[in-house]
Nucleic acid binder design. Structure first.
Length: 444
RNA sequence: GUGGUUGUAGCUCAGUCGGUUAGAGCGCCGGAUUGUGGUUCCGGAGGUCGCGGGUUCGAGCCCCGUCUUCCACCCCA
């Protein structure tokens, strides 16, 4: 073991047990998406660099994995000069699923029946520094609809969130905000020209507290005349209803603010699970293509950042030359959802990652053949069964079963009678080898 | 991208001030016992101390680089 091999930084392998959990989540999400009228789409792992660059802000651009050109690309670089990124890379791994989707819509806009709804479950890559729950390769599960400005889309996607997390048995809080409200607040507090500075600072309220936010806002040039009002806004925790009332008098006759307020009210009045939804005026979200409602989902009882996010983007396809196609979408973070469910022990105990039953290898050759035939018959009946191939020490065979997580072990066969041991409690039962009903009963 | 942290047997970890042949528990392999594993006993294998340089008479230990882990920023799922 001079040099143990490893996966690259921020990536991992998934074994059978991992995959059983991941597939459980993915299958549930896929069902939820299709139940709500979304159809599947897959796009390539990598896109042209131009497609991705400039869509995620400066910070995002830096985290895009660029793919080195093949061939002798360095010839074009002047002697002794440092090559420019565009000279050595013209493709990049996708950074999220939304921008490739916008590219797809723009590329096919004449052929798609609008409004167009699709879901997409694929990995994305970010050249980030890994931490707990942060990887450089991770899965997003997105549902988007383009070509409809209807606020019923907002309602429907919030409902999709609550439906899916309900099915997953993961308690969450769906936080809701609106870019127009943020903009109105920023104007009210003198940050009209520095919306991003304002939202970035305010978004950290949970993390650095009122003092921290005020400090950062001062550094970004907050006018002292607004600090008192800012402090009042930030230090009082408000329910959704209280936030709405507060907004009403704060926004005044700011037309954009009033518009945002009307839209948020429309959505809040119609979501199916209002108890799981909270209006959070400090929620900002970094991706700068959002223009309307924005969402973020936090798992309750787990400190792991957000497990999902999304929002409305009015202008994304216009970057690709197709104007007037408003879109809205949400994303589920598969990897974090799995981590949360693990931490909360919320996976169903019936998840299957190993054969249901293992037949120990009998010492007697005739019995071995008989038992092997039984295993074959079980497989034909849809029972995942395994036959230990060698007449190894009993101890070794049991250890193998345990390591693979196999609960039921066939000790021996006598005529048509098999003796099955539950390795968890040592109980032995016997049953007829063709009594599939009894066998299947064991596994549930 | 910034600052820090981690790496010793399959696993969890000791290893003093730089000093001889690198340690434990569990696991693994073999044998005996146990009348179909899990008990007990005996024996055994397995490590160029993440990798590459350097300092030193001598490096697991000190220095530099690199990879990896985790953490705080930044940002985000």
């Amino acid at each position: 073991m001079a040099s143990a091999p490893s996966t690259p930084k921020g990536t991992r392998d998934f074994n059978a047990a991992d995959l059983a959990k991941r597939r459980y989540v993915v299958d549930l999400l896929r069902q939820a998406f299709e139940l709500h009228g979304f159809g599947p789409l897959e796009t390539p792992s990598f896109e042209n660099l131009d497609t991705l660059m400039g869509k995620y802000g400066e910070e995002g651009d830096r985290l895009i994995f660029k793919i080195l050109k093949s061939g002798n690309f360095l010839e074009a670089v002047a002697e002794g000069a440092a090559p420019k990124a565009s000279q050595i890379a013209d493709k990049a791994l996708r950074y999220d699923l939304t921008v490739p989707f916008a590219r797809y819509v723009a590329q096919n806009h004449g052929k798609l029946a609008l409004p167009f709804k699709r879901y997409q479950i694929q990995p994305v890559w970010r050249a980030d520094r890994p931490q707990k729950g942060r990887f450089r390769e991770f899965y997003q599960c997105d549902a988007d609809v383009v070509g409809s400005r209807s606020l019923y889309q907002e309602v429907e996607l919030v409902d999709l969130y609550s439906y899916a997390f309900d099915r997953l048995d993961l308690p969450v809080e769906i936080r809701l905000n609106h870019r127009a409200l943020l903009a109105a607040l920023a104007r009210r507090f003198g940050f009209g020209a520095a919306l991003v500075d304002f939202t970035v600072a305010v978004d950290k309220l949970d993390k650095i507290g009122v003092e921290g936010v005020l400090k950062e806002l001062r550094e970004k040039g907050a006018d002292e005349s607004h600090v008192g009002a800012l402090e009042d806004w930030l230090s009082v925790p408000r329910s959704t209803q209280e936030s709405l009332q507060y907004l009403e008098h704060l926004v005044g006759d700011d037309p954009e603010g009033l518009q945002g307020l009307t839209e948020i009210r429309f959505v809040l009045d119609r979501v199916s699970r209002p108890d799981a939804v909270v209006l959070d005026l400090t929620l900002a979200r970094g991706l700068n293509y959002y223009t309307g409602a924005i969402f973020e989902v936090r798992a309750l009882g787990v400190a792991l950042g957000s497990v999902g996010g999304g929002g409305r983007y009015d202008d994304l396809t216009s970057i690709f030359g197709v104007k007037g196609v408003s879109g809205i979408g949400i994303s589920f973070g598969l990897d974090r959802i799995v981590l949360c469910l693990e931490e909360l022990n919320a996976f169903p105990s019936t998840l299957q990652s190993a054969p249901q039953i293992l037949a120990l290898h009998p010492e007697n050759a005739a019995a071995a053949d008989a038992l092997y035939a039984a295993v074959r018959a079980w497989r034909a009946a849809g029972i995942s069964a395994e036959f230990y191939p060698d007449a190894a020490a009993t101890k070794k065979q049991y250890a193998w079963a345990e390591q693979r997580g196999i609960t039921w072990v066939v000790q021996r066969i006598e005529g048509d009678e098999v003796f099955i041991k539950n390795t968890l409690n040592g109980e032995v039962i016997s049953c007829n080898k063709t009594d599939y009903e009894a066998l299947n009963k064991l596994f549930n």
